[in-house]
Design a binder for these strands. Structure first.
Length: 466
DNA sequence: ATCGGCTCGCGCAA
DNA sequence: TGCGCGAAGCCGAT
């Protein structure tokens, strides 16, 4: 049963009688497993004795998109292609603006089903289609556990304000989703589209920024996401409680890039975590807190704060105190390029930057330290915000996510409380060397050097003064 | 090693 | 209107 609160009608036009298929316009939920939009499309098709066609619009014009992001995305689409073929569902990927691709394919469709995204470009795409479409368009929200407006109808101030609202409702939404039997398999020729057999020619055709190369550390797609999840639950989860604060221990599940591209459903992860055999109940609780409460606080932030991608999204108390300290002397001052090059005096900070550049990932706790230092070592907080957002969105596989905007905002006080005043930070929380009391920072540097070498980065980190 | 103070605003109890 | 409390802070006193 798919909860009706996951479904919204974006275009009220009647379904088309003379149609060849039901179209699922896939953009956010890039998976063929545990995808409620896909299952709704199957139900709609079965009701009309039609096959299902899944269409995906691939644009190189998405803000800040680069070869790293697209290689991962295309691996995910390869996984989608093989699973849909097995299930007898048609699949076409076309170059173009997603709503244009969807509109074109909708002309032979009885209805259109799409998934939901929360960022401004994703919302705009769906609005564009909804205005132009000549058939009914249904949106199915499959990448949040609790649909955004069910959790809250306003911008939440902090985790503690949204937590009870989510916890009250989440059990209704943590339910299995079985694939529906398909009445009619896709039989005709597949509409013209890109071949996904090889990703390199597609990257070439897209002409995306090659300065940020693909990574070996993470391979995209549902199959890979599920394999990692199972390995984590078998092995890592038993160490999660004790080790999760330790970036050098690799005790994390690394689901964030997969969640960002919709390669795996958060509901599927939540079910698996609840069922995990060797887990302590505390570990389950803290994992679900991050997966659901924290992640959906980020979704609430981008859904209800239109300025989420600018410094204006930082709460007023924090902007005031940072402004009052804008002229404080900075003991170290770097340009955005120096940050990006990992050329600071701080060896541990540089290691974090190298992990990000070389592998597209950074441990959560280090993301905080790393970000707080960019605030501390930039000439102005507004500039630090821009630097952080750019680095996040450029190098992280999970960049350009709702979480990216929340994490950057948190550095400046978003969803946080004030603390005793410090230079530069004012009453915004600062972070310093205490961070490294909690884990073996030198071991972390060695881990990063090994990971970077595996990605083809030569040489060791410069010694640095710290 | 541990503890209190620093400081703001939401949301609930009253 | 008062009060408890919050993403993992820092500093100084004991």
């Amino acid at each position: 049963m798919i909860q009706t609160s996951r479904i919204q009608t974006l275009c009220e036009a009647p379904p088309r009688n003379e149609a060849d298929y039901v179209l699922y316009w896939m953009q956010q939920s890039q998976r063929a497993v545990f995808n409620p939009a896909l299952e709704i499309a199957v139900e709609e098709a079965n009701a009309r004795d039609l096959p299902v066609l899944v269409g995906f619009g691939l644009t190189a014009r998405y803000p800040e998109a680069n070869a790293r992001h697209y290689a991962f995305l295309l691996q995910g689409l390869q996984d989608v292609a093989s699973r849909l073929a097995e299930r007898g569902i048609g699949f076409v990927v076309r170059l173009g603006e997603p709503p244009d691709v969807a509109l074109e394919l909708s002309r032979r469709g009885a209805i259109v089903v799409c998934d939901r995204g929360y960022l401004k470009p994703q919302v705009a795409w769906r609005r564009t289609l909804a205005i132009a479409a000549e058939v009914r368009v249904l949106q199915v929200e499959g990448d949040a556990v609790v649909p955004v407006e069910v959790a809250s109808t306003k911008h939440e101030f902090a985790a503690r304000t949204i937590r009870p609202k989510i916890q009250r409702r989440m059990d209704e939404f943590i339910e299995p989703l079985e694939p529906r039997p398909l009445r009619r398999r896709w039989a005709g020729p597949t509409p013209a589209g890109l071949s996904l057999r090889e990703t390199a020619p597609v990257l070439q055709a897209l002409g995306v920024d090659n300065a940020v190369p693909p990574v070996k550390r993470f391979t995209g797609g549902y199959g890979e996401a599920r394999r990692r999840l199972d390995a984590f639950l078998e092995d890592g989860f038993s160490r999660y409680g004790a080790q999760r604060g330790k970036p050098e221990a690799a005790a994390a599940s690394h689901m964030s890039p997969y969640l960002h591209y919709g390669h795996i459903s958060p509901v599927e992860i939540a079910l698996a975590v609840r069922a995990a055999a060797h887990a302590q109940s505390e570990d389950r609780t803290s994992y679900l807190e991050e997966l659901i409460v924290r992640r959906e606080l980020a979704i609430n932030h981008v859904a209800f704060e239109p300025a989420y991608d600018s410094y204006a999204a930082v709460p007023e108390w924090a902007r005031k105190t940072l402004a009052a300290h804008a002229l404080d002397p900075r003991p170290h001052l770097y340009t955005p390029d120096e940050f990006e090059a990992g050329a600071t005096h701080d060896r541990y900070w540089n290691a974090a930057m190298l992990e990000m550049r070389a592998t597209g990932y950074m441990h959560n706790h280090l993301r905080m330290y790393w970000g707080k230092k960019v605030l501390e070592w930039s000439a102005r907080p507004e500039q630090a915000f821009e630097t952080l957002l750019r680095l996040n969105n450029r190098w992280f596989l999970d960049g350009r996510d709702a979480n990216s905007f929340m994490n950057v905002g948190w550095i400046f006080g978003l969803h946080d409380r004030p603390w005793g005043p410090q230079p530069v930070f004012g009453t915004v929380r600062s972070m310093g060397r205490n961070t490294f009391r909690k884990f073996d920072a030198d071991a972390y540097v060695r881990v990063v050097e090994a990971l970077a070498a595996h990605e083809g980065h030569s040489g060791r980190l410069a010694a640095g003064a710290v």
